[in-house]
Structure formats: structure tokens, C-alpha cells
């Protein structure tokens, strides 16, 4: 194998980049679950909508940065609609019904996307400033991927700050720990959930728009991304920011280095890991509730 520092540094960046994308997706899913015990399988479909919204916005405005702003807002609006029409009424319907309803939503959203944008995968141009390779720590690495890593780290830092330092953050943490108690303390848990849900949707949309220039937008991305995201959430432990961070890093790096070191097992490694974690720690590595 290659014993070259540049090689491993590049692979490290590859792993980090994948982890950051997974993080943007899983953080919304995990906090929504942690706060309201709501299993939203349609989260991956929102990611797909984000990618398509980004592609269309970029094509219409000719500006990548505008697309990056519009896509999360568009997905948030979709999320608000879903919340008002369906999810609000499903809060106490039990996990099985939530699974069924959000599964149905995947079907609906994917087919609507097919009707609007067609079956053929659509590409999105990278902004000129980020296209092509850049120098980083002495290795040549695609500038756009460095940008993904940066966005992931910024969101991570911002969420950590909000959750640990602000009043809203404290309310969210209280809600995750014990929602009934939080409600007794005068926190409007429902409104809190709505706000968190919107942020989660926006982050899924952001992830979609950021991913589109690298992966292109396809109708199959809704289900393709669902399982890896669920794995991240479950490995990390439901409901915690630290869990989502740990889960994304573990899955991102296992996938990247699995592909390098033992490619023939690359597709099964992450499942082996998932099974192993659940057998040893049935509630994930860093669950929000002890």
C-alpha cells in the first residue's frame, strides 16, 4: 500500500468531508427524535428536495450562493407545510404509525420530484472560486470539498454554542431530557419542537444543496441517504449533538478508510459496526438520556 503522508492526509480529508455531510443530515433527525420521539423517515426526501431546489435556483439565478440560501428556505417551507398538514396530528400516534406516514411521504415526495424535474440526474455547477483543486496543508485537494468541511464545522460550532450557551439551547436540552417536566416548567414544548423541526429541515435542505454539485441530484437520493443517516443517528445515540457528531465521524471515516484498506468489505463494514455498537451499547454510544 501507499505509505505516503499526502495520501493518508487526502484520505483523512475525504473522510472528514463525508462526515460533515452526514452530520448536517443527522443532526436534524436526531434532535427531532430526541425532543419529540418522532421518527421522520422523510428526512432523506427533504435532503433530495434541497438538492433539486438548489439546482433550479442556481440555474435560474446563475448564482451558487443565492441557491445555497434559497434551498434551505424552500425545504423549510416544505417542512412547515408537512408539519401543519400531517406531523402535528401524528405526535401521539405511536412510532409505527409515524413510520408508515413518513414512509408514505417518501413515496409522495419522490414522485412529485420526478414529475417536476424528471428522471434524469441533474448537475449543478460549483462556484468559480471553489472549482478546481486547492492547496491545503501541503496536499492538493478539491476546494469545494474543503468548503463542505468548513460549512459542517461552522454549523457544528454554531449548534454547540446555541445548545450549551443560550436559553433556547437550555430549553431544547430540557425538552430532550424530559419533555413532560420541561412543559411543567413553563416551556412551550410544542413551539420548541416546531422551531427545532424547521431548523432540522433547513439543515437537510442545506446538505442537499451543498451535495448537489458533487453528487448531482437524482430521485433515488432520498432513499439512498436515509439508511446511512439512520445508522449515524443510532450509533451516536438518539437526541444528542455529541452523538450525532461522533456517529457522523465514525461512519464517515469507516466508509472512507474501509474503501481504501479493505474495499471488498466496504459495503458491509458499516453494518457490522452498527450491529456491534448495538450489541455492546443497545442505546447507542452517547445517548441524550442516561
Amino acid at each position: 500500500m501507499v505509505a505516503d503522508v499526502d495520501f493518508w492526509l487526502t484520505q483523512f480529508l475525504n473522510g472528514l468531508q463525508l462526515s460533515m455531510l452526514l452530520f448536517l443530515l443527522s443532526i436534524g433527525l436526531t434532535i427531532i427524535f430526541g425532543l419529540m420521539h418522532f421518527v421522520n423517515l422523510a428526512h432523506g426526501a427533504l435532503y433530495m428536495v434541497g438538492a433539486y431546489a438548489g439546482v433550479s435556483a442556481a440555474a435560474a439565478l446563475g448564482n451558487f450562493w443565492a441557491a445555497l440560501l434559497i434551498a434551505p428556505i424552500a425545504v423549510m417551507l416544505v417542512g412547515i407545510f408537512l408539519y401543519a398538514a400531517i406531523i402535528r396530528h401524528m405526535r401521539r400516534a405511536g412510532p409505527m404509525n409515524q413510520v408508515l406516514v413518513t414512509f408514505g411521504l417518501i413515496f409522495v415526495i419522490v414522485d412529485l420530484v420526478r414529475i417536476v424535474w424528471g428522471d434524469i440526474a441533474l448537475g449543478m455547477a460549483q462556484p468559480a472560486i471553489l472549482s478546481g483543486p486547492a492547496e491545503f496543508l501541503g496536499v492538493v485537494y478539491p476546494a469545494y470539498r474543503l468548503f463542505i468541511i468548513a460549512v459542517g464545522l461552522i454549523v457544528m460550532a454554531a449548534l454547540s454554542l446555541v445548545l450549551s450557551r443560550t436559553q433556547i439551547g437550555a430549553m431544547v436540552r430540557a425538552g430532550v431530557e424530559n419533555d413532560a417536566m420541561a412543559a411543567c416548567l413553563g416551556i412551550n414544548v410544542e413551539r420548541l419542537f416546531f422551531a427545532v423541526f424547521c431548523v432540522g429541515c433547513a439543515l437537510a435542505g442545506l446538505a442537499g444543496a451543498i451535495a448537489a454539485p458533487v453528487f448531482s441530484a437524482t430521485p433515488s437520493m432520498a432513499t439512498d441517504i436515509l439508511i446511512p443517516t439512520l445508522i449515524v443517528v443510532v450509533i451516536g445515540g438518539l437526541g444528542s449533538l455529541r452523538g450525532a457528531i461522533a456517529g457522523s465521524l465514525i461512519v464517515g471515516f469507516i466508509q472512507t478508510f474501509g474503501a481504501v484498506v479493505m474495499p471488498e468489505f466496504a459495503s458491509v463494514l458499516v453494518y457490522v459496526l452498527l450491529a456491534a455498537v448495538l450489541i455492546v451499547k443497545p442505546a447507542g454510544l452517547l445517548p441524550a438520556r442516561s
Binding site: L230, V272, A275, L278, A283
Partner: peptide
């Protein structure tokens, strides 16, 4: 036997993992 102590969504995910492992083995 392996997943008996796992509950809720974690059980769903554990069975998913074992199922996918079987899928990969057959596929390969």
C-alpha cells in the same frame, strides 16, 4: 438471540444491519 436486549428503533436498526449483511454476502 443477539438482538434480544435491544428495543424500539434500535431493534429495527439492528435487524436492518443483519439483513443488509446477508444481502451483501449473497450479492458478493
Amino acid at each position: 438471540a443477539v438482538a434480544a436486549n435491544i428495543t424500539g428503533i434500535f431493534f429495527i436498526m439492528a435487524t436492518l444491519a443483519f439483513g443488509q449483511m446477508a444481502y451483501v454476502v449473497v450479492f458478493e
